[in-house]
Design a protein around this nucleic acid. Structure first.
Length: 511
RNA sequence: GGCGAUUUAGUGUAGUGGCCUAGCACGCCACCCUCUCAAGGUGGAGACUCGGGUUCGAUUCCCGAAUUCGCUACCA
């Protein structure tokens, strides 16, 4: 019978959550929801050396921003807690002892310095069946000596005893069966007495087992250690409930080589973190998707399509649609270069589809940043202004450069446009235009347009020149939405004021 | 070096032996639309890593090579 789907996202709080980690979290979430299962967030803080304060909060906030819901975790609680590994020491100790008692693990007293020296003198040194008897451990030393060291409080680690000569099989949902020889595996450290904490491998297996995890969905960088994990399940006698492994392809640098790293973002001009991160140690600030103006639903959609597809040509999908279509059958096996250009397009697409009122709300802080108080304008005015220019932006922040003229009269005029569209005769025509605008009854776009166009035709003026001079006066440059839509929103008074100001201030380039 | 994974246009991908003169999207180019800039519409350039097999027939199956990536810590 099928067991309940329970997946976990298990980041380690050593810094801000990376966008690749976000993708892993997303796939876990999508799979859990698709199968009516549970999503667990487990904090893997077994490396006391690399712990970074604030990282855990960051992880929670980032997932919340993206809409990746957690069913069980540090904040949410749940029946299999605690969900922070540093709080599970008792549990790990018990299982380490179990392995020790069963002879599947042993004590090792080699210091890090000794190991380092060994690696220096022996090429490709590996702590395994071929070398362990030459090292200082409970296998190579007399029992009395071991006991003495232990009693004396000598720091030690517990290593997993890997039996050589075996083919270890890992069944992966994306890659099929992967077989490796146990000979090439080393006796991994499972536990370190120095901080009374297990390493990833032990904690991971114990927790996944205890938390009833059905599918381990993680990045491909874990594939090489999956055989070790299989061996661990065997050693504990848990093979019948061993989770199904799924190793996701990695997110690669967009330009050259290697997996996407924290440095790449600022180097290539796109964020690699969901949220802005202020490093507590260095004080460095790394940009985030949220602060860069990305919409969470766009980020989710974009990320979902990096390494997965719905099996058809559909690309724009809400998170609910993604959940509905998600499966591992359509996951690709190879790493995906991080295509941030397409990410922009997704954001563009989501902005177009967004409700104008919501977009206007998102735009208000941007106005404030540019010294314009949104309170000085009606919500409707802002909403309509934003609606008119949104088709040309990828980000909410870009709305400003396209819509600023709705809020601030031009202070200067694009010199190239002036040169092209503002001739000696233009001021006269513009004054005439002002007269027409003042005389016009209805200032609505549909009503005003035929009147002005009619006047231009009647006078046999050059349509392009007049309209562009008009635009130049009102907008400050020759671009933007339909001219009469602009004037309708701006109103007669402001339109006329701007034309008069332009006539005052623009002097056609001499010669 | 060892081990593993991987391989369709610049990028993300569809494709499970004939429907492929290889589809879609981003990006790029052109045209249309148009008072401008976008958006939108239409069209275009652009790919099955290579070499052997298997087969009547391979992008699709097998073998080999190459490529790229990952792992190789008392980090995850």
């Amino acid at each position: 019978m099928e067991r309940e789907v329970r997946v976990r996202f298990a980041p380690s709080p050593t810094g801000p959550l990376h966008i690749g980690g976000v993708r892993t979290a997303l796939f876990n979430y999508l799979f859990a929801r698709r199968n009516g299962g549970k999503m667990i967030l487990r904090i893997e803080d077994t490396d006391s050396q690399r712990f970074v304060p604030g990282a855990e909060d960051y992880i929670n906030e980032a997932l919340a921003w993206l809409g990746i819901g957690i069913d069980e975790g540090v904040r949410e609680g749940g029946p299999y807690g605690p969900y922070r590994q540093s709080e599970r020491r008792d549990i790990y100790r018990r299982y380490v002892k179990q392995l020790l008692d069963a002879g599947k693990a042993y004590y090792a007293f080699d210091t890090p310095t000794e190991l380092e020296a060994k690696r220096g003198e022996v090429a490709n040194f590996q702590y395994d069946a071929s070398t362990r008897m030459q090292m200082r451990n409970s296998l190579s030393m007399p029992a009395d000596d071991v006991k003495a060291l232990l009693d004396g409080g000598t720091p030690y680690v517990v290593r997993f005893l890997v039996e050589p000569g075996r083919d270890v099989e890992v069944d992966d949902l994306i890659r099929g069966k992967v077989v490796i020889k146990s000979d090439i595996l080393d006796d991994k450290v499972l536990y370190k007495s120095a901080d009374d904490l297990p390493t990833y491998h032990l904690a991971n297996i114990v927790d996944d087992h205890l938390m009833l995890v059905s599918h381990v969905i993680r990045g491909e960088e874990w594939l090489p250690s999956a055989p070790l994990h299989v061996l661990l399940y065997e050693a504990f006698g848990w093979t019948d409930t061993m989770p199904q492994f799924v190793h996701l392809p990695l997110l690669l640098k967009p330009d050259g080589k290697g997996k996407l790293s924290k440095r790449d973002g600022d180097r290539l001009g796109f964020p690699v973190f969901p949220l802005e991160w202020h490093d507590p140690k260095s004080g460095n600030v790394s940009s985030g998707y949220r602060e860069s103006g990305y919409l969470p639903e766009a980020v989710v959609n974009f990320l979902a399509l990096l390494g997965w597809n719905p099996g058809d040509d559909t690309e724009v999908m809400s998170i609910d649609e993604l959940i509905d279509k998600f499966d591992f059958h359509h996951c690709s096996k190879s790493g995906a270069k991080f295509a941030f250009e397409k990410g922009k397009w997704f954001n563009h697409t989501y902005i177009q589809a967004m409700d104008d009122a919501r977009l206007a709300e998102l735009f208000k802080p941007v106005m404030l940043e540019h010294g314009v108080n949104p309170e000085a304008f009606s919500d409707e005015y802002i909403r309509r202004a934003v609606a008119m220019v949104k088709s040309r932006v990828n980000f909410v922040s870009e709305l400003w450069e396209h819509a600023r003229f709705f809020f601030v009269a031009p202070e200067e005029y694009d010199p190239k446009a002036v040169k092209k569209r503002w001739s000696a005769d233009t001021p006269r025509i513009m004054r005439e235009l002002v007269g027409k605008l003042n005389a016009a009854g209805d200032f609505a776009s549909a009503a005003l347009e035929p009147q002005i166009l009619g006047w231009i035709a009647e006078k046999e003026y050059h349509l392009g020149n007049v309209m562009n001079a008009f635009r130049l006066a009102v907008v400050g440059e020759c671009k933007g939405p339909h001219m009469f839509d602009i004037t309708e929103l701006m109103g007669r008074e402001e339109t006329v004021r701007r034309i008069e100001a332009a006539v005052e201030r623009i002097h056609p380039a001499d010669e």
